[in-house]
């Protein structure tokens, strides 16, 4: 049985050992989520870039102090493909961010020595169709990937309606394979793949996700609300379906109260990826 000391390596027996250059478990990732074009999608776009970068640095330090055993790798988590309420020219209900926007945020990460996550909300498009457009960024050592099943619409349902999207292990495995290929071809350190989850149905067949040592998979608990509800969601939708590492999302606006690093670190297993929206 696993003990709290194993928490960082939680949970899966037989998961690949980290390769040299892997971010986790040596470092915990602390990410700011959002998009500079919107003040409503998360802290990344909510305040001016200088204050945001300073706030991320301060927040990362809080985490480093709360768990002195572990370094903290700050990250900018950009929604690079944004689900839309309108079909758009391709009728895919998603908007791809321009190169200049992605480069702007990449520049911040590059300058600081931090990570950049590119998040895909597919809308009516697919993971398979969107990844190729991000490859030119993913070949950089600091750029990683995230998938948002909530906005991966199935059966032609439109995002932003009562219908919740979902993703299957097949799509996650496709992303893992693409990332592994990029790591191999460009001799890069392992990539991190974050998959958001806050219900049972939004990620199907999680037990069939096939781990690869070149890709570290995080299932990120991204439910909001009171700490008790978040803990329950973590237990039922993340811990119940172990994949590799776990993540925990914190909402400045919708969490009441906002949990402190110390409080989050009381959950088992300890999340290795922390995101602030």
């Amino acid at each position: 049985p696993l003990t709290p000391a194993d928490s960082a390596r939680w949970p899966v027996p037989g998961a690949p050992e980290p390769l040299p250059g892997a971010v986790m478990p040596e470092s915990r990732i602390v990410a700011f989520y959002g998009n500079p074009l919107s003040k409503r999608m998360g802290i990344l776009g909510q305040i001016d870039p200088d204050s945001m970068l300073k706030k991320l640095e301060d927040t990362a330090m809080e985490w480093a102090k709360a768990d002195p055993e572990r370094k903290v790798m700050p990250a900018l988590h950009l929604i690079a493909v944004v689900a839309q309420g309108y079909p758009g020219p391709a009728k895919k209900y998603r908007l791809r961010m321009t190169d200049s926007l992605i480069e702007r945020v990449a520049g911040w990460a590059e300058e600081k020595g931090w990570l950049l996550f590119l998040d895909i909300q597919p809308g009516l498009s697919t993971v398979e169709e969107e990844i190729p457009h991000l490859v030119k960024y993913l070949t950089r050592p600091y750029v990683h990937l995230a998938l948002d099943p909530e906005f991966a619409m199935k059966d032609g349902k439109k995002p932003g309606t009562d219908w919740m999207g979902r993703m299957d292990a097949v799509e996650v495995n496709h992303a893992i394979n693409q990332l592994a290929k990029i790591v191999e071809e460009h001799q890069l350190p392992p990539k991190v793949l974050v998959v958001h989850r806050f219900t049972r149905n939004m990620l199907t067949n999680a037990s069939q996700i096939r781990l690869d040592p070149r890709v570290q998979v995080v299932i990120d608990m991204d439910g909001y609300g009171a700490p008790s509800g978040k803990k329950a969601a973590y237990k039922w939708f993340v811990v119940q379906y172990p994949v590799q590492y776990t993540g925990w999302k914190l909402f400045y606006k919708n969490d009441k109260p906002l949990m402190t690093p110390r409080q989050v670190l009381e959950v088992y297993p300890k999340p290795m990826y922390i995101q602030y929206q």
Binding site: S27, M61, A64, K65, P68, M73, A109, R140
Partner: peptide, 11 residues
């Protein structure tokens, strides 16, 4: 690019 993680100061 070089990674620059943040570390807690020594006590």
């Amino acid at each position: 690019w070089r990674p620059r993680p943040i570390q807690a100061p020594l006590p």
